[in-house]
Amino acid sequence: MAITSDDVRHLAELSNLSVTEEEIEPLKKDLGAIVEYISQLDELNTEGVEPTYQCFEMENVWREDEITEFEAKRKDLLNLAPESTDNQIKVPKVL
């Protein structure tokens, strides 16, 4: 299937990426080629086959819900934020 400029805009919106108008044309071409390539899976008969989402032998791994020491300090984690104040991460106004 062909990818249109509107498809690119829609996917960018879903991806929270504000792509510029100049980026749309090359993305349309590249994504179109990739989608065409991966579409060759259509040839493969997968009727009645169960999907594999992960390839290790375990199912759920359980642990007690206990508070344990974490190696990182609160101060270091807050320092990673582009902006913080009074022990809180700061962002521009929402509304």
């Binding site: 879903l14 989608v35 899976l41 493969l44 989402y53």
Partner: peptide, 23 residues
């Protein structure tokens, strides 16, 4: 973008699910 394409409703079964079956 490709990831969100194969996961988006309408394409999920044809791509993502199909690929996991092929896997």
């Amino acid at each position: 973008l490709i990831g969100n394409f194969v996961l988006s409703s309408g394409f999920f079964d044809a791509y993502y699910l199909k690929a996991q079956k092929a896997r």
